[in-house]
Amino acid sequence: MTMNWKRHLREEGYLEFGGFRVELTLDNTFMDLEYIPRIIVYDEETERWHVLRNPIPKGKTLEDNWDNAIEVLERIAGGVEEPIFGEPDVAVRFARALRSLADGS
């Protein structure tokens, strides 16, 4: 699959690869007036949605939020950061699939 995955995710708000669907979203879980960026991941194997728990720095604009979320994914793809889902098996498979996508394989 030849594509610029970061651009696709940034422009479309979602990305599908290796049995996963990644979506950029906003959350106000704690009923804050401001929304925080969030990455949610659907795993075809577990048939469930998971929230990526890695911290995403809050930006000044919506665009900053998306860019910061993609930077977290870039760190995971580069092996600099491990994904945090609370389910180690999902984290391992997600990191492997994202690294394959980033490597173009």
Score class of each variant (00 low, 15 high):
residue 2 T to V: 13
residue 4 N to M: 01
residue 8 H to S: 12
residue 8 H to I: 13
residue 9 L to I: 12
residue 10 R to K: 13
residue 11 E to R: 14
residue 12 E to H: 14
residue 14 Y to D: 13
residue 15 L to G: 03
residue 17 F to H: 09
residue 19 G to P: 09
residue 19 G to N: 03
residue 20 F to K: 01
residue 21 R to A: 01
residue 22 V to Q: 05
residue 22 V to E: 00
residue 25 T to M: 09
residue 26 L to Q: 11
residue 27 D to V: 14
residue 30 F to C: 09
residue 32 D to R: 09
residue 32 D to I: 07
residue 34 E to I: 03
residue 35 Y to G: 10
residue 36 I to Y: 12
residue 36 I to P: 03
residue 39 I to D: 02
residue 41 V to D: 08
residue 42 Y to P: 00
residue 44 E to D: 14
residue 45 E to L: 02
residue 45 E to P: 01
residue 47 E to P: 01
residue 53 R to H: 10
residue 53 R to S: 04
residue 54 N to K: 01
residue 54 N to E: 03
residue 55 P to I: 10
residue 57 P to A: 14
residue 57 P to K: 13
residue 59 G to S: 04
residue 59 G to P: 05
residue 60 K to G: 15
residue 60 K to F: 05
residue 60 K to R: 15
residue 61 T to W: 01
residue 62 L to Y: 09
residue 62 L to S: 05
residue 63 E to Y: 07
residue 64 D to Y: 04
residue 65 N to L: 11
residue 65 N to K: 09
residue 66 W to Y: 13
residue 67 D to K: 13
residue 77 A to K: 03
residue 78 G to R: 10
residue 78 G to I: 13
residue 78 G to F: 03
residue 80 V to C: 05
residue 83 P to Q: 08
residue 85 F to G: 04
residue 86 G to T: 05
residue 89 D to P: 13
residue 92 V to S: 11
residue 93 R to E: 06
residue 98 L to C: 06
residue 100 S to R: 14
residue 102 A to Y: 07
residue 102 A to W: 04
residue 103 D to P: 02
residue 104 G to Q: 08
residue 104 G to K: 04
residue 105 S to C: 10
